[in-house]
Amino acid sequence: MSTLKVTAERLTVHTHPNADALELAQVGLYRAVVAKGQYRDGDWAVYIPEQSVLPDPLVDELGLTGKLAGSAHNRVKAIRLRGELSQGIVCRPRALDGVDLAAAHAEGRDFAAELGIVKWAPPIPVHMSGDVESAADLLPWIDIENIKRYPGIFAAGEPVVATEKIHGTACLYTRTADGEFVSSKGFGAKNLALKRDEKNLYWRAVLGHRVPEAAAKLAAIFGAERVGIFGEVYGQGVQDLAYGAKATAELPGYAVFDVSFSDATGAVRWVDAEDLAGVLAGLSVRLPTVPRLYAGPYDEAALVALADGRETVSGTAAHLREGVVVRPARERRSDVTGSRAIGKLVSDAYLTRKGGTEYE
């Protein structure tokens, strides 16, 4: 998931091709459907992203009572309106009357707390949960921002690698000199690890795919005090897209998407995207990896198109693709996000599918 920030943005307004009374307000590469004439090109407004949960008074003020997602009809989700994808909400809440939105944008001001907006936390199914323990040495995963929200993460022509984004649940494995930790993205963000349980989904994936053996070999290669292996666990029983695997009755599907390590100083480094598959292929323990779909110069339009299509994980193109994750060929930081240069592009068909699940 992405981080939650509710920000002031300058709009580019487009004609809605299928509705005379509607227009499209663009923020980054996102477009949100708005009433015609509500905004003009260059106007400033507040952008509320997907996965935001709004307080009831704000839902009512925006005229969205009963129109949002979730059991309480208060969660922002991508939808199609008259054939056009609408992602997020563009608005000017009364609570911000008098606020200079251009200045707020320049300051990077986040209005989420001020407006009572929180990030949606998906429920954790029982079979994906378990008893937890403190894990200060766990190497955590990060929130990946959507390139459509932050199109400046990559420069045109920059060498990048794009891999398929698998719809599963992130599994964090850390090997230290004294032991090992297994966690989910949600627990890992709280420095918590799942106690060893061979019936637990994450532990079954880690042990079944021999991740500890691979981590030991990587520690020796890098001379590392800690090694983090980050993989996606997937299959029937995990999410609605299963890729032909049966996670509850058999060995769960598993694919590595990143590796990090740290030395005695504690500084964390990441294996470069262009080297990751080769590093893992050189181990005697062969870990599955996420499919690489593209390696070459950054081309925004081509990568947006690549996010759509059929999945390549199962080998049978069983269902639609969730999207792609893009990294620079050589690891670097991004001034746009203030963290790693990494971004995702999500398939429009995935966002608007029926009956989808979104567990972390």
Rank of each mutant, 00 (worst) to 15 (best):
M1Q: 09
T7F: 05
A8F: 08
E9K: 14
R10F: 02
T12C: 09
V13E: 00
P17R: 00
D20G: 05
V27H: 01
Y30Q: 03
V34P: 05
G37N: 02
G42R: 09
D43V: 08
W44V: 05
A45G: 10
E50W: 04
L54M: 04
P55S: 01
G63C: 13
G63W: 15
S71K: 11
A72C: 01
A78I: 06
L81G: 00
G83K: 10
E84S: 14
G88I: 01
I89E: 02
A95F: 01
G98A: 14
V99D: 03
D100T: 04
A103E: 15
A103F: 13
A104N: 14
A104Y: 12
A104I: 10
D110N: 13
E114H: 06
G116W: 01
V118E: 04
M128I: 02
D137A: 15
L138S: 03
P140A: 07
I142Y: 13
I144M: 13
I153Y: 00
F154E: 04
A155W: 03
G157K: 06
E164R: 04
G168Y: 01
T176C: 12
T176R: 04
D178K: 15
E180H: 14
F187T: 02
G188Q: 04
R196C: 09
D197N: 15
K199V: 05
N200V: 01
L201E: 02
H209K: 03
R210K: 15
K217N: 06
I221Y: 12
R226G: 08
F230G: 05
G231E: 03
Q239L: 08
L241D: 05
L241M: 13
A247I: 05
A255G: 10
F257G: 04
T265F: 00
G266T: 09
R269F: 07
V271A: 08
E274F: 07
L276T: 03
A277I: 13
V279C: 07
L283K: 09
S284H: 12
S284C: 07
V285N: 13
R286L: 10
A295Y: 00
G296Q: 14
P297M: 12
D299F: 00
A301Y: 00
A305S: 11
A305M: 07
G309W: 02
T312S: 10
S314H: 11
T316F: 09
A317S: 14
L320M: 15
E322F: 09
G323C: 05
V325H: 03
V325Q: 05
P328S: 13
R332G: 12
T337V: 13
I342P: 00
A349P: 00
A349I: 07
A349V: 08
Y350G: 02
E360A: 14
E360M: 13
